[in-house]
Amino acid sequence: MLLLHFLALFALPLCLAAVPKDAQSIQEELVKLARANNGVIKLDDRTYDMLTSPKRTWSAAVQLTALDPRRRCAPCKDFDPSFKEVGRAWSGVAAEQRDSHFFATLDFDHAMTVFQKLGIQSAPIVHVYPAADGPRKPANGRTAPSTYDFSFGFEAGPLAEQLSHHTPVPIPYKAPFNWSRWGGIAASGVILIAALRFVGPILQWKWTWALGTVLTSLVMTSGYMFTRIRGAPWTGGNGQWIAPGYQNQFGQETQVVAMIYGLLASAFLMLTVVTPYTSSPSRQKAQVYLWSIVIFIMYSVLLSLFRVKNKGYPFKLLL
């Protein structure tokens, strides 16, 4: 009997192997994993539990994503490069600070159980886990993860800026030099100067400027800046190209309305400037009638379009 107990003692080293490792060794393993993958740990169930263990002295930013083409998650693919960029920028920090914060990514297909446990139904999501123990534990004792909200979009710059609130030192992320943009500007500048001899007279002719001015103001007054700022789509679904609601519009509406305005303005100009120069009375009469009818019809079209947007509008012309 006693021998059995004595022999059990030999199992002690084995038990020690099975005992959960202390925080220090987990951290070392995580550091190795991070270094192996350019600063971003690829997580599975086991390593996820290690990373988010309640004894962690480190903080972590975890991306929950679904990159498999079967999942058809376009935002995940949009966001993944930004996250990888920030993770790589972080791996350039001095080892002492770097090893107390980790970047990790968790793909749905590699760790379905974790997704189910957390009840995640959409992707991508970024969770930020503060340290639960040790010197970096937050003062208010809140160790639950917080979520990064994508109100600034999927860009890497805002991500780095926001996550720097949670890292020991700010993330040294620098947006890569936009070669294509500056190269394009430089090239067009060179071309412009070289072609100045030919382009010059065109630029000096006032009707070039007139055309540019009128086109710009037509586009602006048709609500183009609205579609750009709000990111409105070209059309809504089901072939519906008029956005419901008064303070709302689709991209196609801008074009249609600009064209209507342009047509009406040109009709007025034809009546005012061009028809008086026509020398034959019958031709001139035909022109006057034509442009007047064009004005009347286009104005009715515009009004009916407006009535679709503003349901309470009581006036109408033809339609």
Binding site: T221, S222, F226, Y261, F306
Partner: peptide
């Protein structure tokens, strides 16, 4: 930002005489 119905509501036919005047 302003959508096009606001322009028309506030200015009506002046908005398409505007380019002609320019």
């Amino acid at each position: 930002p302003t959508a096009w119905p606001s322009f028309f509501m506030d200015l009506q036919f002046l908005i398409f005489l505007f380019p002609a005047g320019v």
